[in-house]
Design a protein around this nucleic acid. Structure first.
Lengths: 158, 158
DNA sequence: TGACATTAGATTCTTATGAATCTAATGTCA
DNA sequence: TGACATTAGATTCATAAGAATCTAATGTCA
C-alpha cells in the first residue's frame, strides 16, 4: 500500500477525497450493474427518469451528471431495450421528451433497492451522516451557483 | 432545469452527492487537462507519482483510484511522453517500479498549481471546509477498512 | 420580414475504459 | 522438490465516453 503522509497535495484535495469516497462506496454496486448489463451512465439516466416525468435531453444530462452526447448514446441503448421512450416536444420541436417505460421503472426499482441495501450495509459502521450529506449539498449548491454566475459573466465579458 | 424535490432517492444517495460535488468542482480543471493533452487517468497517476517514490503498478492503481489495466495503459502513454519510467523490481521480478521523470515532475507541478488555484477560486465562497474534509477522510477510512474486512472474510468463507 | 444568434439534440470519430484473461514470478505446504 | 495457489502486471478486445461538430428549430432585434 502507498500510505502517503498527511502532508501531500492529494490528501487535502477535495476532488480526490470526493472521488475516493464515491469509488469505495460505489464499487459493490458497480458489480451489481455489471450483473444486470447496465452501464454506469445508463444507471444514472434511469435513476433520474425514475423520479422525474418527461424530461428533455439536456436537463437529463445535467441531472445524470453526464455530458449530453453520453446521455444521447445511453438513451439509444435504453430505448433499444425498451426501458425508455422518446417523443417529440409538442411546443418546441427540437426537444425530445424522454420518459421511462414500465419495464424501465421495474429495472430502476430493482437497482435502486440494491443500491439502498448496499449503502445501508456499508454505512452501518459509519456513524451519523446527515450532517455530512447536508454539508455536501450546501457545498454543491454554492459551487453550482458560483459557476453559473461565472459563466454568465464570461458570456458578457468575452 | 430538473428541480427534483427533496424527497427523491438520489437526493439522499451519498454516491450521487459525492459525484456531483466532484464534478462541479473538477469541471474547470478538466478543461485545463484537455489543454495540456493529459487524460484524467494520466493526471491521477502523475499526481500520485509526484508525491511518492517508486511504486508498483497495483499500489499505484489503488492510489490513483483507477483499475489496474487503466493505469497500465496510462503508464505506457506517459512513458512514451517521457514523463515516467518503469524499471524491474530488484527483489520481485514481477514488479515494475514506476517513478516520475524530471519532465513529469515539472508537468505535475504545473497541473497541481492550476488545480490549487482553481480550487481556491471556487472554494472562496464556500466557507470553512476543514470539517467536511475530515468527515470525508473518516468516512473513507471506515469504508475501506470494512471493505477489506469483508473481502478477507469472503475469501475464507468461499 | 429577414439576418444573425442561440438552443436542443443527434452524429461523428477518436480515444479511454475496464472486464476478462493470460503469462510469469513468487509462496506454500505436502 | 514438485504440485498448486497466489500475486504482479501485461494484453486483448468489445464498449463507453466525450470533444467537436452538425442540423434543425426557435429567439431576437433591426
Amino acid at each position: 500500500m502507498v500510505t502517503s503522509g498527511t502532508s501531500g497535495f492529494l490528501d487535502g484535495y477535495l476532488p480526490y477525497l470526493l472521488r475516493r469516497a464515491d469509488q469505495t462506496l460505489s464499487a459493490p454496486f458497480y458489480a451489481v450493474l455489471n450483473r444486470y448489463g447496465v452501464a454506469r451512465s445508463e444507471w444514472r439516466v434511469l435513476a433520474v427518469l425514475a423520479e422525474s416525468g418527461e424530461v428533455g435531453v439536456v436537463d437529463l444530462a445535467n441531472a445524470a451528471l453526464s455530458p449530453q452526447p453520453t446521455v444521447t448514446h445511453a438513451l439509444r441503448r435504453l430505448e433499444d431495450r425498451g426501458l425508455v421512450v422518446r417523443k417529440h416536444g409538442p411546443d418546441d420541436r427540437r426537444q425530445r421528451l424522454v420518459s421511462i417505460t414500465p419495464n424501465g421503472t421495474q429495472l430502476a426499482a430493482t437497482l435502486t433497492a440494491e443500491a439502498k441495501a448496499l449503502e445501508a450495509e456499508q454505512l452501518a459502521d459509519a456513524g451519523e451522516l446527515t450532517d455530512l450529506i447536508n454539508r455536501l449539498r450546501d457545498l454543491t449548491s454554492t459551487l453550482e451557483a458560483t459557476a453559473q454566475l461565472r459563466a454568465a459573466t464570461a458570456d458578457r465579458t468575452g
